[in-house]
């Protein structure tokens, strides 16, 4: 499986944010996107996921097989929001994700265990602290299988122990042949990740 972007350009509100971005990821590869605020890190992730239209260039997934015919179908997208319902319990949220996305991977208990929150399954999501919510959102990546993870500031709000756990989760995903694109301004502990520095917005 191969994810390639060729001369990719993105725009927001009709204004070009970046262009000429190219990268290629094979199974087990990761890409860490850094850059100033407003340099288009988040926009790039959303363009790759297909949530924003491609302004120029192409992004393709090759050899995805029947299960993952295009990029969007192969992606887990974790944005700034956690995409969880505060009124539902943690377990209900995760169960919904698995049922809706298909390709079940881990049980809810196992996924919660992997982020170190095995005891909160029955609690409403809204009761959790910011860091806990982020970790539940990370658990949401584990309940159903997607080869490509698109993570937008995945470590926002996490403490040191949770950051280490996140690194372990990402390394595990890569070791099993997954791909990963993360936009961040904090080091994620991915040693052999490819780096992409977005050309700065404004002052460059």
């Amino acid at each position: 499986m191969r994810l390639t972007a060729d001369n990719l350009g993105g725009e927001r509100g009709g204004e070009p944010v970046f262009d000429g971005v190219s990268f290629a990821l094979a199974a087990g590869d990761s890409l860490v996107i850094t850059g100033q605020n407003g340099s288009g890190k988040s926009t790039l992730l959303r363009v790759v996921a297909g949530l924003l239209p491609v302004a120029a260039g192409t992004v393709r997934l090759n050899d995805g097989g029947e299960d993952f015919p295009d990029v969007a179908s192969a992606c887990h997208y974790l944005g700034h929001q956690n995409a969880m319902k505060p009124a539902l319990t943690v377990a209900e949220n995760l169960d919904f994700r698995r049922d809706f996305l298909g390709h079940p991977l881990m049980t809810t208990e196992a996924a919660l265990d992997a982020v170190g929150l095995d005891s909160v399954g029955a609690l409403p999501f809204g009761y959790l602290s910011t860091g806990q919510r982020r970790r539940i959102a990370l658990a949401g990546l584990l309940v159903s299988f997607r080869p490509v993870w698109l993570l937008d500031e995945p470590s926002a709000g996490l403490d040191l122990a949770s950051e280490r756990r996140l690194t372990a989760l990402m390394q595990g995903h890569l070791a099993e042949g997954g791909m990963l694109i993360a936009a961040t301004h904090l080091p994620l502990g991915l040693d052999d990740a490819k780096a992409l520095v977005m050309p700065g917005g404004g002052s460059g």
């Binding site: 005891s119 609690l123 409403p124 009761y127 602290s129 806990q132 122990a161 949770s162």
Partner: peptide, 14 residues
């Protein structure tokens, strides 16, 4: 108690 349980989960996590 649920809120306290959420807090306790945080304390035990590390």
């Amino acid at each position: 108690m649920r809120r306290m349980a959420a807090k306790r989960a945080e304390n035990r996590a590390p």
